[in-house]
């Protein structure tokens, strides 16, 4: 039992590290978008496109990092479009997000058909557990640079939103459109740029899926991580640092089921998969009140 416990814990830590990176990138992306006052539900689309393009570019150029860059660029095209078109009167951002999921998925599956078989160079990783020689431990602590990059990004965004000029501008756009206009900023432009930046990150998150873990391109690659971004951001109360915590938690919760199964407890595998969603739901229920919600950007209709 004692050994089982440690095995499960290790598996959860390992799982949290492996699974959380795409969550981290997507949630940071959605965080930027939502801070500027708009919801983009379409991260799933830019993510799958990122996964496909990242894999393809990595395959043809032999460099996984070029793949990551290309994935971000293709992702940002989606955000650019979403941000631009949702700035027009009468375009519903939620419906447009779902439409872009469909378009992104369709395009990725269409052009990705030839990428299912070949193997592209993957991202390198290294183990943080230099202090241990136990293979399970070194395996669990294997991380790659994207994970580190994500953490740095979360810190930068945290301080950026708080203290930097552009962070303030984005927040003004998200909190009070009139105030932004009064200050002479083009609110639509700010939102479009924020959306593009946001999907740049979700594109990278997608490339992580195809280039590191699970580490190949196929049509069942993304399992709703992009859609979850919106929930994650609420869970994180629109704070980049907490996006990191939320991603780890979601990753860990996702790893709980397989870990328990590995240790011989197979009951409730799928229910454990649902824990992040139930947690988020509880948080929404407890934190919503009929009056001002306070934490959410005021221009966001949440």
């Amino acid at each position: 039992m004692d050994q089982n416990f440690w095995l499960i814990l290790l598996a959860i830590i390992g799982g949290a590290i492996r699974v959380s990176t795409p969550f981290l990138f997507v949630s940071l992306g959605e965080c930027i978008t939502e801070k500027s006052g708009r919801i983009n539900l379409g991260h799933e689309g830019s993510m799958i496109m990122g996964a496909m393009v990242g894999y393809g570019v990595s395959l043809f150029t032999g460099s996984a990092w070029l793949g990551i860059l290309a994935a971000g660029c293709i992702g940002s095209l989606f955000g650019l479009f979403h941000g631009w078109i949702c700035g027009k009167k009468g375009v519903n951002d939620i419906a447009m997000g779902i439409a872009l999921i469909m378009l992104g998925t369709g395009l990725a599956f269409f052009f990705g058909k030839s990428l299912i078989k070949p193997t592209a160079p993957r991202l390198d990783d290294f183990s943080l557990a230099w202090w241990s020689s136990v293979p399970q431990i070194t395996q669990a602590f294997r991380i790659n640079w994207l994970f580190i990059l994500g953490i740095i990004l979360a810190v930068v965004l945290h301080y950026g939103f708080k203290y930097s000029r552009w962070g303030m501008i984005v927040r003004v756009a998200g909190e009070n459109e009139e105030a932004g206009l009064a200050l002479g900023y083009n609110v639509n432009k700010i939102r479009t740029i924020s959306s593009a930046l946001g999907t740049f990150l979700s594109g990278i998150g997608g490339a992580y899926l195809s280039l590191y873990y699970p580490g190949s391109w196929n049509e069942g690659l993304s399992s709703g991580q992009g859609l979850m971004a919106v929930a994650l951001v609420i869970f994180a109360r629109w704070k980049p640092m907490q996006c990191f915590v939320a991603s780890l938690l979601f990753g860990g919760a996702g790893a709980l089921g397989p870990a328990l199964q590995g240790a011989g407890f197979s009951y409730g595998y799928y229910l454990f998969n649902a824990t992040p969603y139930i947690l988020t739901l509880i948080i929404i229920i407890t934190s919503s009140s009929k009056k001002e919600s306070g934490v959410a950007p005021a221009e966001l209709e949440i």
Binding site: V91, A99, M102, L103, G106, L107, F109
Partner: peptide, 26 residues
């Protein structure tokens, strides 16, 4: 053509029709 062709078409239709809202009035 691969089966994803129809998903592409659906995506294009949805994006265009929902996005068109922003142009039709203008």
């Amino acid at each position: 053509l691969p089966d994803a062709t129809m998903v592409v078409l659906q995506g294009i239709i949805f994006v265009t029709i929902i996005g068109w809202e922003g142009f039709s009035g203008k």
